[in-house]
Simulated assay, not measured.
Amino acid sequence: METAYLKTPLGVAKICGDENGITEISVLDNGEVSKQIPAVLKEAASQLQDYFNGKRTTFDFKRNPQGTQFQQKVWNALLEIPFGKTVSYMDITKKLGDVKAIRAVASANGKNPLWIVVPCHRVIGTDGSLTGYAGGLWRKKWLLEHESPSAQQSLF
């Protein structure tokens, strides 16, 4: 397993993976930035930089997130949320066919191992409010504003 640390506007992104794909992308408040990016991580690092530079709205590098079958199902549903759009937890549970699973969906959302790439930041409360985000609500707000189709002062 290879690891690299990449500077972003939101902190230091930790990228982990191997020839089978990227298993983790998370954000740290600070840390040492990698001088060399291992070959198996270069495409993911490049695509993340493009995203932050406003040149990318989707990711197509090889992913290999580890999780339960239910978590994988939720993460796949998150991948269908278009860039610049938001959905509620209830929207996701309805899509998966079980509105009683809202807590399980929220839990799986919070365990998403691929920060930004699997866009859990695009999930908001049914009332339109920003809700919990493992990276901190200020990062969620930044990401949603970064992806906003129109330049606004603030979404929230």
Rank of each mutant, 00 (worst) to 15 (best):
E2M: 11
K7T: 02
K7M: 07
K7C: 00
P9Q: 08
L10H: 01
G11T: 11
V12Y: 05
A13N: 01
K14F: 01
I15T: 00
D18M: 04
E19K: 12
I22K: 02
T23P: 06
I25K: 02
I25C: 09
D29T: 07
N30W: 04
N30F: 15
G31E: 01
V33P: 01
V33A: 06
S34M: 07
S34N: 03
Q36K: 15
P38D: 01
A39T: 14
V40Y: 02
L41S: 01
K42H: 08
K42G: 04
K42M: 14
A44K: 02
A44P: 03
A45S: 10
Q47D: 01
D50G: 11
Y51Q: 08
Y51G: 06
Y51W: 12
Y51V: 04
F52W: 13
F52C: 00
N53E: 12
N53D: 15
G54V: 12
K55E: 14
T57M: 14
T57F: 00
T58Q: 14
T58V: 12
D60Q: 13
D60L: 11
F61K: 00
F61P: 05
F61A: 14
K62C: 12
K62S: 04
R63I: 15
N64H: 15
P65L: 10
G67V: 09
Q69F: 03
Q71M: 05
W75P: 14
N76E: 15
A77P: 08
L78Q: 01
L79M: 08
L79W: 04
L79C: 06
I81Q: 02
K85R: 14
K85T: 03
Y89V: 14
Y89T: 14
Y89K: 11
D91S: 15
D91Y: 04
I92M: 09
T93P: 00
K94V: 11
K94A: 07
K95Y: 08
L96C: 05
G97R: 13
D98S: 12
V99Y: 09
A101V: 06
I102D: 07
I102A: 11
A104Q: 15
V105D: 05
A108I: 12
N109T: 13
G110K: 11
N112E: 03
L114Y: 05
W115R: 04
V117N: 03
V117W: 04
V117A: 05
V118N: 11
R122I: 04
R122P: 10
R122C: 10
I124F: 05
I124H: 03
G125D: 06
G125C: 07
D127A: 15
G128V: 08
G128W: 09
G128T: 08
S129W: 00
T131L: 02
T131H: 08
T131W: 02
A134S: 13
A134Y: 05
L137M: 14
W138L: 11
R139G: 04
K140I: 13
K140W: 12
K140A: 07
K141L: 15
K141H: 13
W142C: 09
W142Q: 09
L144W: 00
L144V: 13
L144I: 07
L144Q: 01
E145W: 07
E147T: 04
E147I: 01
E147H: 11
S148L: 03
A151I: 15
